[in-house]
Design a protein around this nucleic acid. Structure first.
Lengths: 94, 94
DNA sequence: GACGTATTTGCATATTTTGCCAAATACGAA
DNA sequence: TTCGTATTTGGCAAAATATGCAAATACGTC
């Protein structure tokens, strides 16, 4: 059924990716681990906005974080996210 | 940049998939082509709601439609959508 | 042309998501 | 403990989404 946990869980993950800034973040994190302030510099949104985007991605299980002193470093949990990415881009160019 | 057409386009696709009912529809369409009324029977939402879900998926380029008499049949454009699906599920079970 | 079935669209409403500011929290250094 | 830097959270207004009902549209049949 449409309300199966399977579909609900999936939709949480997709929702997390359904924002240009968050896709940009995932793309950056595919390169290497970044701390919040580095991401903020490149995104030019309010720090609080960047932080919330990161928490959405983390809640969906797409990224993880570790704390080093007063900085928080984020990284991708699963590179498969970006493989999908490639598939969609290909489709878009047909 | 975060507002690159690349990320905006991708976010449209992800947004389209960010709903349990629409994921259910994609899953059904992976099996075979369906017409709107068949989908509606299995979804139990108002016909207008189902129709709107279908138009979101179509605008994102995930499904296509053809008209046969007064029915409209929808099918998946790209099965890669569901491969991604598998990857996410695997990740979720770790 | 009127009728019946299938689908889409307009509108109103309810809910969710965004994004900024200000305040709170965390942590190391002085 | 006070200060400075990094990050998160509360609150709120604006924007986007979701959904049902009714009306409109499309198409074949009578």
């Amino acid at each position: 059924m449409k309300t199966d946990a399977k579909y609900v869980q999936m939709s949480i993950v997709m929702k997390a990716m359904a924002h240009p800034t968050r896709l940009f973040i995932l793309d950056m994190l595919d390169e290497r681990e970044y701390c919040v302030c580095e991401l903020q510099e490149r995104i030019h949104d309010d720090m609080s906005t960047v932080s919330r985007h990161l928490s959405v991605l983390k809640n969906a299980g797409l990224i993880s974080s570790r704390k080093v002193n007063n900085q928080v470093w984020y990284k991708l949990v699963c590179p498969c996210v970006l493989e999908f990415y490639q598939c969609i881009l290909k489709k878009g160019n047909e």
